[in-house]
């Protein structure tokens, strides 16, 4: 049954991608991209990657789609006809595709437990991590403990992305005399948003702190919390959102998250271990792992939340500016 669902979902995904190629209406392209992301999340779920599905649904279908829509508000929603012939790209793609298909025939068959990918470090993660780290969710154990360096690097990349976006666009605080923004007149949206937003934030906190035991963690929680504030900003306008969490405060928050993560590493060095060696954080190694993972997941969550929301602020204030002009 799982194979059948896999077949159907992947076929739907391929059809969505095919449709995106030929559409000229970019609004429809972005909407289809949202559908594409949700379909991918379903496929990830079907392939047992629950944490990945969670992330793809909140990031791909949520944040990416919103950012692309804001960009379309600035750049316009119609793609113009290309003056170049599309025969050469088609030829390049067909040749590359054929070579890759030929390459897949050397791949080990899908889903086989004896595949090389399952032989190297995975057995150790699966068998030892519940004892060494003491968490039921192996993905969190590997993410935060075994591959803690990697995750620190990725948090820094996310942090540098916000530096890039802010230096390219900047966040402009609106003056009070400017045009009213937000969907002020939509009463139904206001009421529904006021009911939903606290629940979304509550859910984000649950995902943040329950990530050790079930699917979830700092990355997903940060994005979900940012989505709640983005909804608030979309419906009530940026000035009111700035009054709740300002862009300046978010810049500090993004840096604080990365520093919190790195300081756990430094503290474990101070305690006599290696960088990010959580065993040193408490007398009992497993308890130390618990403390370490909770703190660094918090750092990741804070950084991701602040970065996503600040990127949205940067794009949103640009769009409002171009609408005013």
């Amino acid at each position: 049954m799982a194979e059948f669902i896999d077949l159907v979902l992947l076929a739907m995904l391929a059809l969505t991608a095919l449709r995106i190629i030929f559409l000229k209406d970019l609004f429809a392209v972005v909407m289809l991209f949202g559908i594409y992301s949700f379909l991918s999340a379903l496929i990830f779920l079907n392939l047992d990657a629950v944490d990945v599905a969670f992330t793809e649904a909140s990031v791909g279908a949520g944040i990416s789609t919103v950012l692309m829509l804001v960009t379309l508000a600035i750049t316009g929603r119609k793609e113009k006809q290309s003056t170049h012939s599309s025969l050469l790209p088609l030829f390049v793609v067909l040749v590359t595709g054929a070579a890759l298909i030929y390459g897949t025939l050397d791949m080990p068959p899908f889903g086989h437990p004896d595949n090389p990918v399952h032989q190297h470090v995975a057995p150790r993660y699966i068998e030892e991590s519940p004892k060494e780290v003491g968490l039921p969710n192996m993905v969190t154990s590997v993410l935060a403990s075994y591959r803690g360096f990697d995750t620190l690097g990725e948090t820094v990349v996310v942090f540098s992305a916000v530096i890039g976006v802010l230096s390219l666009l900047g966040v402009r605080r609106k003056k009070k005399k400017d045009l009213e923004s937000g969907l002020e007149s939509h009463r139904v949206l206001h009421v529904v948003a006021k009911i939903i937003i606290p629940l979304v934030i509550l859910f984000a906190l649950y995902v943040q702190f329950h990530g050790d035991f079930g699917p979830g963690g700092g990355f997903q929680a940060g994005v979900i919390a940012a989505a709640a504030f983005i909804l608030y900003a979309l419906i009530l306008g940026l000035p009111k959102a700035f009054a709740v969490v300002g862009p300046r405060f978010l810049q500090w928050m993004a840096a604080a998250g990365v520093l919190l993560y790195a300081s756990v590493g430094l503290y474990s060095m101070y305690m006599g271990g290696h960088f990010l060696d959580y065993n040193q954080l408490a007398t009992d190694p497993v308890a130390g792992q618990h403390y370490g993972i909770i703190i660094i997941e918090l750092g990741v969550g804070v950084t991701v939340f602040a970065v996503m929301l600040n990127i949205f602020y940067a794009f949103g204030s640009q769009a409002e500016r171009s609408n005013v002009q």
Binding site: V52, T55, V59, G60, V139, E154, G164, F219, I311
Partner: peptide, 14 residues
């Protein structure tokens, strides 16, 4: 892939 997705949206934003 979990971390790659989040890094992916950050680079998309840039």
């Amino acid at each position: 892939i979990l971390t790659a997705i989040v890094v992916g949206v950050a680079t998309t934003a840039v």
